[in-house]
Every structure is written in C-alpha cells, then in structure tokens.
Amino acid sequence: MKTKNLFGILMLFLFTFAFISCDKEDEEGRKITDYKEYVLTVASEMKPGVMSSDGYNYLNDVYPVKKENTEDWEAMGYIDGFEFEKGYEYKIKISETSYLDYSMGQPAWTEHELLDVLSKEKKDSEGLPLHFIPEWFYEEHVLPKYQYAVEADNKEVIEEDLRTNSILPLDYHYMLYRGEDSSLRWIAIKDDSNTLGPCIIKSENKDPEKMPESYKLLPWEGNVYGFMGWQFLDEEGNETNYPSFDVFASRSTKSRTFNPAPNTVCLYKDLTEYYKNKYPQAAIKAVVVSYAIEIN
C-alpha cells in the first residue's frame, strides 16, 4: 500500500513539474537567439536557388551576395525592405536576427532586414554561378519520360531518327518555378556545368478540341486539368531557339499513398511536316513526340 502511495505521489510530482515547465515555455514565447549587422554586396541579377519554409524546400529566385571580406557568391532569400532593380550592383547594410519559438511549425528561423543602401552602381556583376541549386535537389526531379509515335510505310528509319535526335535532352532534370516577379520559369540541369535556361515560360490557354489529331497516338495519363501552349523566352522576354510545345497538365491517379502523386506536365510536339520534308519517300502520315515532366 505504501508503495502505491509513493508511486502516486511521484507521478503527481512529475506531472506538476512537466505542466509548470510547459507553462513557463509558453510564457516565454518567441525569443531572439542572435543578432548581427553587416555589409553585403548584392549582384546585379537574381539566380534560381533553393529556399526552405516549414520544412519544405522549393525553387525561387534568390539574391547572389558577398559578405564583407569574402570572394565567393552565396545565396540569400528575402531581405525585408530591399527594393532590387536588375542591372545594378548594390552595397547594403542589413541586420540578421535569429528567432526561436517552439509554438511555431519551424521553431528556429532567421530574418534579414535592410538598414541602409550604401551604394547602387549600374554594372554586370562578375563571376556569378549559373544557379544556386544543389545536386541533391535537382536529382530529386526524375528525368523526362520520352515517347514517340509514327504512322508511315517506312517507320524504322524515322523511329531511329527519333531515338537518336530527341529535341529535348533526356539526361537533364527539368524544373518549373515562380520567379521573383511571379512569372512561370523553367530550368534544366544535367550537372553544375551544364544548364539550359533559366527561361520565362509564355503560356496561353488552348482549346483541347483544336489540338492536333496526332496527339491521340500518345494518350496522356491521369486527370488532365489544363491545356496550354508554351513558348520559352530569355530573361529579357525575347524569343529563344527552344522549340514551343503544346502542354497537357495532369495529376496522376496511380498513387496508393495518402499524399497525391506529383503533378505532371506533358509536352507534345507534332513533327509530321518536319519528317515529311526530311524523309519524302517514307510515306509519312503522322509523327508525334511527348515529354512527361513531374513537378515535385
């Protein structure tokens, strides 16, 4: 009996201690764990990079910056109060404040705030990397699924041509993201030295009834919720040599998990006229290719 009473008293003590500790932690709330001020050089253009929020990693335009007495560019996300104008290199003074609040989904975080613009010089910053996307991130994006279909008397020569001459490289990881100006952007990465883009995607809605009949040779999977035409522009908004595509946006229906499968965009291109001109003796009726790209 004494043992039971002793055990009950001990449990009551532990419960009371835990309650007081939690209550004290709640009372403390948000607190500053670190504060510093320093000068940054901000490059004349933004670059695609990886940012994190509530444990989720995503692509966004970031500022290439150099801290005082350093030579290498590094990425920095949002700077509160900083109004960036492309084509100008800045020297700015900022504050960096680190916070801790266990009531938040992400309890520890850091905020940057503009204190002063020290200089603004019109120039092209030198030595900028192509991007700030680490290998572990872009390799999470699976390579595109390439398909083609041919209707012709001499299919073999055209299919061999399609196998060896894909209009999009198949060993690149293709990624879509929203730029700082909210424009839809596209970048493809093979490795740190081989990159396509970034490009601005000029998108327009299309009537599915007006899509080429040849696309039915490659039926799309999943639930299609959008039909578009995509054209790839450079970062100044000018036309590029990248081919345009018709695009079907869909969500896969094959996932057995609770979370929905990644969205997919399927890029279609009718190449019938191109191959009729290239192989006039092949009696070609239709040639179509598609590239399925997952959006993580």
Rank of each mutant, 00 (worst) to 15 (best):
W186K: 02
N241C: 01
L118D: 01
I79N: 05
A149P: 00
I32L: 06
I187M: 07
I295R: 00
R251S: 14
S125T: 07
Y38M: 10
P134E: 13
L162C: 05
M175D: 10
G179T: 07
F132N: 06
V65P: 08
D34P: 01
L12Y: 09
A249L: 08
R178S: 13
V65K: 05
S252A: 11
T272Y: 13
V157D: 03
P48C: 11
Q147G: 06
Y148G: 01
L162P: 04
Y138A: 12
M104L: 13
G229H: 14
T264S: 03
N5G: 06
Y35F: 15
V142F: 09
N5R: 14
E83D: 14
L218D: 03
L12N: 03
T272L: 12
D80A: 13
E27G: 00
E45I: 04
Y174P: 05
G229C: 02
L176F: 14
G87P: 03
E140F: 10
G87I: 03
M1D: 10
Y38L: 06
N69P: 02
L118K: 13
L14A: 12
A149R: 06
I284W: 13
V157P: 01
S52A: 10
E83K: 14
K206L: 10
M11I: 15
W136K: 13
N259L: 15
A286V: 06
V150M: 03
I20S: 10
F245Q: 00
E111P: 01
P260W: 03
D191Y: 07
N154V: 11
G105A: 11
L100I: 03
K120V: 08
